[in-house]
Simulated scan of single mutants.
Amino acid sequence: MRLISTSIKNQNIMQKENKQLLVITHLSQLLDVVTGFGGFIVPLVIWLTQKDSVLNMEENGKAIMNFRISMFIYFIICIPMVLLFGLGVLGFLILGILTFVFPIVNAIRVSNDQQPYYPMSIKFL
């Protein structure tokens, strides 16, 4: 038990706190709005390359990836729903608002030392 707690302490000492990188990781999801692509790839690359060196990057990266994968699945579900009385159009609108607002909200939460919260996120990772 003592070895486990010591290794956890050593791991936390080796990781540095970098709130700016966490905020950038959350905000990089908005690249889809600006450029049309990159909103999935850029946070994924940042998470995979920095998860061992930045404190809380593992949790934040998993939350971002779970949210992005969940939103993709919900967008796919909305496609056939368009034929059903146009409910898919309303779904696209709601999902579009969620994918724009929650990266900003969670970037603010991370900068205030709070845990990120993405609604409707299915835990894949």
Rank of each mutant, 00 (worst) to 15 (best):
Y74E: 09
P43T: 02
I104K: 05
L55G: 01
I79S: 12
I46Q: 01
G39D: 12
N10I: 06
F92A: 06
T25V: 11
V23K: 01
L83H: 09
K51F: 10
P80H: 13
L83Y: 09
L95C: 08
K16N: 11
I79T: 07
K62C: 08
N66M: 03
I94A: 14
E58R: 04
G38S: 07
M81N: 10
I76R: 04
V34I: 15
N60I: 08
P43H: 01
T49K: 14
L30S: 04
L27M: 07
S53K: 03
E58I: 03
L55Y: 07
S53E: 15
E17F: 08
N10L: 10
S53L: 03
M81E: 10
V89W: 15
I46V: 10
Q11T: 10
L27W: 01
N106A: 09
L98C: 09
S5C: 05
Q20C: 05
T6L: 12
R68A: 13
Q50L: 05
F37C: 09
F75S: 13
N18Q: 03
I24L: 12
G86Q: 06
K51A: 06
V105K: 14
W47M: 02
N60Q: 14
M81W: 07
G38L: 14
S53I: 09
I64P: 00
I76Y: 07
F92E: 10
L90P: 01
G61W: 00
K62N: 12
T99C: 13
I24M: 13
A107V: 11
K19N: 10
V42M: 09
V82P: 00
L44W: 01
L22G: 08
L84W: 15
S53G: 08
V45F: 04
L83G: 15
L22C: 06
I64Q: 03
V101E: 13
N18R: 05
T35H: 06
T35V: 15
L30I: 12
F75V: 15
Q29G: 15
F102W: 14
V34F: 14
I79W: 08
L44V: 04
G39K: 03
V45R: 02
W47G: 00
E58G: 07
I97R: 03
V23T: 06
V54F: 00
T6P: 02
F102G: 00
F102M: 11
S53D: 15
S70I: 03
V54D: 00
G38Q: 12
K51G: 05
G86S: 05
W47E: 00
N18F: 03
M81T: 08
I94M: 12
F75T: 12
L90I: 15
Q50P: 04
L44G: 01
F100Q: 10
L83P: 06
K51L: 11
W47A: 00
I73M: 14
F40Y: 11
F67T: 00
M65P: 02
I73H: 07
P80Y: 09
I8W: 01
F40V: 11
V101H: 07
T25N: 09
P103L: 10
K9H: 11
M65F: 13
T35Y: 12
I46Y: 00
V42G: 04
T99Y: 08
W47T: 01
L27H: 02
I24N: 02
L55W: 09
K9D: 14
I24E: 01
F92C: 07
I41P: 03
L48Y: 11
V89F: 15
N60K: 07
L90S: 04
Y74R: 04
G91F: 11
G39W: 12
F100N: 06
Q50A: 12
I79L: 15
K9W: 04
H26W: 05
I13D: 13
